[in-house]
Design a protein around this nucleic acid. Structure first.
Length: 779
DNA sequence: GTGGAGTATCTTTTT
DNA sequence: GATACTCCAC
């Protein structure tokens, strides 16, 4: 690894590169005047206010190319920060394409986190970290916090560790080390928050580990306390570029200000109207006060939109107008008028999914809209991930190919994390958290008691858990079957560790040996659950993913930072994702379902953050609408299942903010004998009433008439589970149904418990509430 | 020590 | 409706 001094040595070379003088700049001809400004104003602070679809990435990448081309900086003197790995990847590709060569030479183009890891590997010792520190994910973090909470004798029912994790995260986002937490926050987590935060940081240091927030926080601390280090990097990074500046939190902001403090060659790109990460500590204020922070800053506005039709832009503008304190932009386009936005209401969530499925089919077949569309030109953007389920269910039944973006991630799956814990232990045996995860996975007969013995032995001797386990076995502190299994595990770990140094063995082979010899593979082979084969499949995939890396360590590093899994499995598919995940993307056709008050805008957001929360929700609506290029379809449902309970709601207040002239209101389906059989007569009537309302010109007054459809009756009462009072009347011999055990006969009643002889599951004692009379079975 | 049944909580959004 | 957690019976 090259040391920092070696890096400095390049500086001389860069001067000669600059001396080479300007080269032709054909790429500038591709830009509109505003974009050109944004590219050519190289020195001094620049704020690029780039509305949705205004060619922001183009301007940013061209700026990098221009910096290189004019000799202002060498590739490794440019610090370019993004928020997502995807954005970093894309930028690298585009720069490479423009330069006509792979942009391998841009080591400082990456996410905040990836760049901080690089820096921290070099300078970690300044905050008492060894350079091979591990990065904890949220799971490890939570387990660690739980231990601390329990040790502090706090009732983790009333004060969940999750909550503490959130509070600590928040402090870290605000660049607050435990000693800097303001007095106003002293009451946090039952007045124990600050103390536990300090303990947590101590524990992390003992484990030679950091969490995500630490990556930024430690670097800020180092820059603040080591002037020499800061100055070196201020010299080194001649030009700084920041993407999605509106999403920076305080720690990131301080980090940037420190680095840009000397030369102030910083170009921040953002859109205050697309700030949607306030809940994660992002401060819109950062972008709003850029000109104050950097006096004399050039502000460039990109307002010509190359993405959407005028109808779509008009709708988006009208919605976002409701927010206060914006920097203000007016998007315009030369695009043809196109279709109006479409708005439709449905009876319930399932019907919404059904309708959208049919619509997608029709659009694909060319029977709807001005041109046939490919499946990958369409996307469904939801507010909360639980909304995805209805679409997945529906699309599975009609065989419509879809892809969920940002769903449960590969590296978060249980089996993958288990396997990775084994790998972590092979690479670094002192990784106590990894050891705790796998001591008893697969089952080795090592329960709480044995694990406590290991912990105590380790602590008494001041060694890692693995070493503690070895000692405990040696001293015979753990007897019987567990002891033998533990000895085997400890010896295995030592053996695999030695094998890691073996040149004749690839790390893929090693990984396979580890999983086989530890019994982990067998554990899933013996498991009879329906998921087991899939999990084995995932493990195989994990081994395959190792191929791209030098060794296990390199792989683990990669995974801790890049938790996304791009599945580019072939074939056109409809995309389903959250609005947050959709930022930066665009699709010819966009569906925005679930526009109901409470769901969107989210009740929780409004409860917790009031007006600020509502405004962030509104920005989310803005982001959603502006993803659409040609067609945007907004929908809402009167009824939806929440927590398995039916709930009804009113259309979103944002629907009122859509400009009437740019919206076409569609008649709900079902009235023409289309879909949705099986409703009661009452349901049809209600739906007919809805149709009239929708068709009326004054549809905006819908809200005033919410009583008519907002408070619609639940579908059918016979679908509800039998209630407790009714259950009391079970009689001996009665035929009953249980969700899990199936059919059976009542053979005894004791209070609220009923003894049932099930046909398949045999004799069980169950609580009456979970039983239905068999002719009353829900279906 | 394990596994099953019963109970509580959950749903925003993620590097 | 699903999962994580707790409690109780083997």
């Amino acid at each position: 690894m090259s040391s920092f001094d070696e890096m400095d040595a390049f500086e001389g070379a860069s001067l000669s590169a600059r001396a080479m003088g300007a080269r032709p700049t054909p790429y500038l001809d591709d830009l509109n005047p505003a974009q050109r400004d944004a590219v050519e104003l190289l020195d001094g602070p620049v704020l690029m206010l780039a509305g949705a679809g205004t060619g922001k990435t183009k301007a940013l990448t061209t700026r990098i190319v221009h910096l290189l081309n004019t000799g202002a900086a060498r590739p490794n003197e440019i610090l370019a920060v993004t928020f997502t790995n995807k954005a970093a990847r894309e930028m690298k590709q585009r720069v490479g394409r423009m330069l006509g060569q792979p942009a391998e030479g841009m080591p400082w183009l990456g996410t905040f986190h990836a760049i901080c890891v690089k820096l921290l590997r070099r300078h970690g010792e300044l905050v008492n970290l060894k350079s091979n520190f591990t990065i904890l994910d949220t799971d490890d973090q939570l387990r660690l916090l739980k231990q601390l909470v329990r040790a502090a004798n706090i009732d983790d029912k009333r004060w969940p560790a999750r909550m503490l994790a959130g509070i600590i995260d928040d402090w870290k986002n605000r660049a607050l080390t435990p000693d800097k937490v303001p007095a106003a926050d002293a009451g946090a987590y039952n007045h124990k928050g600050v103390e536990l935060y300090a303990q947590y940081q101590t524990r992390l240091r003992e484990l030679n580990a950091v969490d995500f927030g630490d990556l930024l926080l430690h670097m800020v601390t180092i820059f603040q306390t080591h002037e020499d280090v800061l100055q070196q990097y201020q010299r080194w990074f001649r030009y700084i570029l920041v993407d999605e500046y509106q999403d920076t939190n305080v720690a990131q902001y301080m980090w940037l200000r420190l680095l840009a403090g000397a030369h102030k060659n910083i170009c921040c790109v953002g859109d205050d109207d697309q700030s949607i990460y306030g809940w994660r500590g992002a401060e819109v204020g950062n972008i709003l006060r850029f000109e104050k922070d950097f006096p004399g800053a050039h502000v460039v506005r990109l307002e010509q939109n190359y993405r959407s039709t005028p109808h779509i832009l008009a709708a988006a503008s009208n919605v976002i107008r409701g927010n206060q304190g914006r920097l203000g932009k007016e998007l315009w386009t030369e695009a043809a008028e196109g279709e109006k936005l479409r708005l439709i209401g449905h009876w319930d969530g399932e019907e919404e999914a059904r309708w959208i499925g049919e619509e997608i089919d029709a659009m694909q077949g060319g029977t709807r809209g001005v041109r046939p569309m490919n499946l990958d030109e369409m996307a469904i953007l939801v507010r909360a991930s639980h909304q995805m389920r209805a679409f997945e269910d529906r699309f599975l039944t009609i065989g419509l190919p879809y892809r969920v973006i940002g769903g449960p991630r590969f590296y978060e799956r249980m089996e993958i994390r288990d396997a990775m814990a084994y790998f972590r232990l092979v690479v670094s045996p002192e990784d106590d958290l990894a050891f705790e995860r796998i001591v008893n996975t697969p089952k080795r007969g090592l329960g709480d008691k044995a694990q406590q013995t290991i912990q105590m032995t380790a602590r008494a001797n001041g060694v890692s858990l693995v070493e503690g386990a070895r000692l405990a076995v040696e001293q015979g502190a753990i007897k019987g079957k567990g002891g033998g299994a533990l000895r085997e595990l400890v010896e295995g770990l030592a053996r695999w560790g030695r094998m890691a140094g073996d040149k004749d063995l690839t790390h893929m082979e090693l990984a396979e040996i580890v999983l086989d010899e530890s019994g982990y593979t067998a554990h899933w082979q013996n498991e009879k659950t329906p998921e087991a084969p899939g999990r084995l499949e995932n493990l195989k995939e994990l081994i395959k993913a190792l191929e791209g890396f030098e060794n296990l360590q390199g792989f683990l590093e990669h995974v801790s930072l890049i938790m996304d899994n791009e599945q580019n499995d072939g074939g056109a598919k409809v995309s389903i994702m959250t609005l947050h995940a959709a930022k930066g993307l665009e699709f010819p056709a966009v569906f925005l379902p679930g526009w109901e008050d409470g769901l969107f805008p989210s009740q929780r957001s409004m409860d917790e953050s009031g007006i600020k929360g509502l405004e962030e929700e509104r920005r989310l609506a803005y982001v959603g609408i502006t993803r659409a290029e040609e067609v945007c379809t907004i929908s809402f449902a009167a009824n939806r299942r929440v927590f398995g309970q039916w709930q009804n709601s009113m259309p979103s207040r944002f629907i009122d903010e859509l400009p009437e002239d740019h919206v076409e209101v569609l008649t709900p389906p079902g009235l023409y004998g289309g879909s949705g059989g099986g409703f009661s007569a009452q349901g049809i009537e209600t739906r007919a009433a809805e149709a009239n309302v929708y068709n009326s010109p004054g549809w905006k007054r819908l809200q005033a008439r919410q009583g008519q459809y907002g408070m619609a009756q639940p579908k059918e009462s016979r679908n509800t589970v039998i209630d407790m009072d009714a259950v009391a009347s079970f009689t001996l011999g009665e035929r009953v149904f249980h969700q899990k055990f199936g059919y059976g006969a009542v053979i005894g009643i004791e209070g609220d418990k009923v003894e049932v002889e099930f046909e398949k599951a045999g004799l069980k004692k169950v609580v009456a509430r979970f039983l239905n009379a068999s002719d009353d079975v829900p279906f």
